[in-house]
Amino acid sequence: MAHATIHMGVTIPQLLRGASRICPAHSTLTVLRHSAFCYCTANGTLKSKRKMDHLERTASNFRQEVISQAKVCGITNESETVKRLRLAIANKDFTFKAGQWVDFFIPGVSVVGGFSMCSSPGLLEREGILELAVKYTAHPPAHWIHTECTVDSEVALRVGGDFFFDPQPGDSPVKLVLIAGGVGINPLFSILLHVADLHGYQEGKGNEYKMGTVKLYYSAKNTKELLFKKNILGLMNAFPGKIMCRFHVTQQSSQICEELQPHVTEGRISEKDLEKHVSKDTLWYICGPPPMIESISKLLSNIGVPTNCVFFEKWW
């Protein structure tokens, strides 16, 4: 997640008790009250040099008050190391903006996860469904998703984050350049789907919105690790000239399939790739590992992109 300054905070059990006034006291939330907690210290500093967890890194970020129970209604393998979850959301007041993340509370697991949505706000509005794509790690929430989570598993979610794209009707159109590294594609894919909705991809959507073009640059080790690639190709075909993508692979060892070949560059995203998009009405969204964020930010500074037009989310 994005690095956040640590402030004095309340524990998750306290927040969950407060949430009981907002959403029903389901059995899942009862268990979570006893299991989930925050590691922030009273003076806002860390007592040891251990790696900060999700709650600490995001302590100063915006969070909604609403905590909703959710039930897993689908699990698929997005890649060899990434599982994609479909979650049915119980609370009708639960909403999010494209690019945001959720605190992910698991019964019996004390560590709280933090995962960006990879679906559009429109899917939640239409079907009550939210999607997450989670890479396997030893971190307890990710490990639980890959080893214990099943269809009908119950969890609880709370939306947070200051990294999002949320245009309003009547806003002047802007061009977007989305730059993703690895699993950092998640919030940017959510933004891409949201733009598609606003372009009128779903019937009845987008009539009041003026949308500019979107160019996605997505870098991974190889094409097997490019998440959502078929979906992205589908969006490009549905919105020619409006939604565009360039895939970058840095350690490709196998032949690239014919369908992907026209859209793949072997090598890192370069200054030359980005400088063609510089304009006064372009916004830049970046999500990926911290070294990539720093490298791309430096490239953008070198080509004259104002810092107030650059938004990023760091995944650790």
Rank of each mutant, 00 (worst) to 15 (best):
K83P: 09
E125V: 01
V102E: 00
G184D: 01
A98M: 12
F104C: 09
E154V: 14
V31L: 05
W144L: 08
E266R: 07
S253P: 12
K224V: 08
Q69R: 04
V159L: 10
G114K: 02
S35T: 15
P24K: 08
G122T: 02
E78L: 11
E56W: 11
G212M: 10
N237Q: 12
V72H: 13
G161A: 11
F164W: 02
I129L: 06
P167F: 00
T282W: 01
N77Q: 00
P13S: 07
V195F: 10
S119Q: 08
F189S: 03
L178P: 00
N91R: 02
G99S: 10
L16Y: 09
F247C: 13
T41M: 03
S119I: 08
I89S: 02
Q261I: 11
N308R: 10
N302Q: 10
V174Y: 04
V66S: 09
Q168N: 05
E203L: 04
I106E: 00
R268A: 13
I256L: 14
P291W: 04
G304T: 07
P240A: 13
E203I: 02
R57W: 10
Q69T: 04
C73M: 14
E148F: 02
M8C: 04
S301H: 04
L178R: 00
L300R: 01
P240T: 15
C245N: 03
T265I: 14
A19N: 08
E148A: 09
V278P: 08
A2N: 15
W315H: 05
F165H: 13
A90S: 11
C23L: 00
V109P: 02
I179G: 09
A196Q: 10
V111W: 01
K276H: 08
E266P: 03
Q64N: 10
E266H: 08
F62I: 06
K71H: 12
L29K: 15
A220K: 10
L198N: 07
K83W: 09
C23A: 01
P187H: 13
H277M: 07
P121A: 05
Q100W: 00
G161F: 05
A196I: 08
K83L: 12
R84A: 10
G181Y: 06
K175I: 06
P107G: 14
K71G: 09
N61K: 08
K47F: 12
G122D: 05
K298Y: 02
G184R: 00
S279K: 01
R17A: 04
V214Q: 02
D152W: 04
S279A: 03
W315L: 07
D273L: 03
E125G: 06
L198F: 02
V195P: 07
H199S: 05
R17F: 00
K51I: 05
S68A: 01
K47C: 14
W144V: 06
E127R: 05
H263W: 13
K135V: 00
F164K: 00
G160F: 02
I269C: 04
V159G: 09
F247M: 14
G181F: 07
L123G: 00
L216E: 01
D93A: 14
C23S: 02
K298D: 01
E258G: 06
L124H: 11
R33H: 00
F163K: 15
H26G: 05
K224F: 10
E65S: 15
